[in-house]
């Protein structure tokens, strides 16, 4: 019996969603279709689930949202497993350090604080994320970068043109730039982020700073693809960013 369990775990290089028993593949979905509520709508919803490769699609709820729109809740079963061993995940390569170690490392090896400039750029007026990472208060009991002796922080706030951010970074000879992008309507964040990289390159400063993007729709992979050194998405703690910046800045100076 014990043996079976162990073997199963080892073999779990392929997995399926777990509903109420192993490998049942149960998936819950909800979506709206521009169709009136009725049998045709339900069939359209089941077809959506079939197109998602879900077997035995079930519509458990259909509710009209207006004259020609219907909201569906459905369940289906995924039969093709995920080969977990073949997946590749991009994430910044850094170790989590505690605040005291960060302050000590920077003091001993760099001998001065790491200079960080942060801004919510373009039309973006949302600073909740940026403030949580930078300001002393931080987020959820995890203090922001200002609370560390290892960092000197300039938080430029919201709606900062990329040009001003670059100028400020150069003026302060910043070690790192943190860009926050919350508004993602029509992918405005992508062109904004790309534009910043271009400006830095034009100024010959791209390689002189650690460039970091953050926001609810940012992933590390996306940030790297756009020419950033790292990206931090939802759930990021200030201490994550602090750990990363410390290691990356020191590593570039061969101090880590």
């Amino acid at each position: 019996m014990m043996d079976d369990v162990v073997r199963e775990n080892v073999e779990a290089s392929v997995i399926l969603p777990y509903g109420d028993h192993k490998n049942d593949g149960v998936v819950q979905v909800s979506f709206t279709l521009p169709v009136p509520d009725g049998p045709l709508g339900d069939e359209a919803a089941r077809q959506v689930m079939r197109l998602m490769s879900l077997k035995e699609p079930q519509v458990v709820e259909s509710t009209p949202l207006g004259e020609n729109y219907t909201f569906f809740v459905g369940y289906g079963k995924l039969t093709r497993p995920v080969e977990i061993s073949k997946l590749k995940v991009a994430r910044p390569l850094w170790d989590k350090l505690d605040a005291a170690s960060i302050d000590r490392l920077v003091r001993e090896r760099l001998g001065r604080p790491i200079i960080v400039v942060g801004a919510a750029t373009g039309q973006d007026a949302h600073t909740v994320g940026l403030d949580a990472i930078l300001n002393y208060k931080g987020f959820s009991g995890d203090h922001g970068l200002e609370a560390y002796s290892a960092f000197r922080v300039v938080n430029m706030g919201s709606q900062i043109p990329n040009e001003s951010l670059v100028a400020k970074a150069i003026e302060l000879r910043a070690d790192a730039i943190l860009v926050s992008q919350v508004v993602t309507q029509r992918n405005v964040h992508l062109s904004n982020l790309t534009n910043l990289v271009e400006l830095l390159e034009a100024e010959g400063w791209r390689d002189k700073v650690v460039l970091v993007a953050g926001g609810p729709r940012i992933t590390h992979a996306l940030a790297v693809e756009l020419g950033y050194d790292a990206g931090f998405g939802p759930g990021t703690r200030p201490s994550d960013v602090a750990s990363y910046l410390t290691q990356e800045v020191l590593r570039r100076k061969s101090l880590y």
Binding site: Q123, A125, Q185, R186, V188
Partner: peptide, 21 residues
Amino acid sequence: RSTGQSLLDYVPYGPTTEGYG
């Protein structure tokens, strides 16, 4: 409103179909 409109020192004119946030 579109993000950033509060900082415009004028009011845009006519119907609009592009805005951010």
